[in-house]
């Protein structure tokens, strides 16, 4: 592949209109590949604390006037779940659904979990001072944060499109290519594992 400098060196032999045309084409190409005011968050983790951090980052990005996309994959899908669905799933799929939290109230923190008491402790500590995880998720949806749901983990763990709390207009099921399209155009991309 030739670099821009090489291209411009070749241009010298042509007349002016050709050169201007060629340069305009190059500028248009550069503009198309330019980064936009966007933030891409890839939420891999299904831990309570990391979900909180993700929602704070998403809300902060929206507040700074940027667009934000959250790509939920693997355990991160549990953060935007509404309830359990068993119908039409295989035995292993049913088991997976039963083992995973039914909704974001069942998420445990990554440290100091103490069985089910850790999440209660953290929620108690946040009460009144911070917005709850569900409240932040709702605000993010209202503020226009886009959600992408990983299709490989959906088919592997047999998730159901009805399980999401996110309305269909702000959620889409997609693979890694759509995630890259967003992440490459974004100014920053974070992987939250």
């Amino acid at each position: 592949m030739e670099t821009v400098q090489e291209k411009q060196k070749d241009l010298v032999q042509f007349d002016l209109p050709t050169r201007v045309n060629e340069l305009e084409k190059q500028v248009a190409e550069l503009k198309e590949n330019a980064q936009e005011d966007k933030v891409s968050l890839i939420l891999f983790s299904g831990d309570f604390d990391k979900a909180i951090a993700t929602m704070m980052m998403a809300l902060g990005a929206v507040g700074m006037g940027m667009e934000c996309t959250i790509y939920c994959t693997f355990w991160g899908v549990s953060v935007i779940k509404r309830k359990r669905f068993y119908k039409g799933k295989s035995l292993l799929g049913k088991m997976m659904t039963w083992m995973l939290p039914a909704n974001s109230h069942g998420l445990n923190p990554s440290q100091m979990a103490f069985g089910p008491f850790g999440r209660k402790l953290f929620r108690y500590m946040m009460k009144g001072k911070f917005e709850s995880l569900e409240g932040m998720l709702q605000q993010a949806i209202e503020a226009g944060v886009k959600f992408q749901i990983c299709s490989p983990s959906m088919s592997m763990m047999e998730f159901n499109p009805d399980e999401w709390i996110v309305p269909p207009e702000s959620a889409e099921i997609c693979g890694v290519a759509a995630m890259y399209e967003v992440a490459l155009k974004a100014k920053t991309a974070y992987f939250i594992s």
């Binding site: 704070m56 809300l59 902060g60 507040g63 006037g65």
Partner: peptide, 10 residues
């Protein structure tokens, strides 16, 4: 606390 004032100001 943290992200809320920014959202509200926006």
């Amino acid at each position: 606390n943290d992200p809320m004032p920014i959202i509200k100001v926006k």
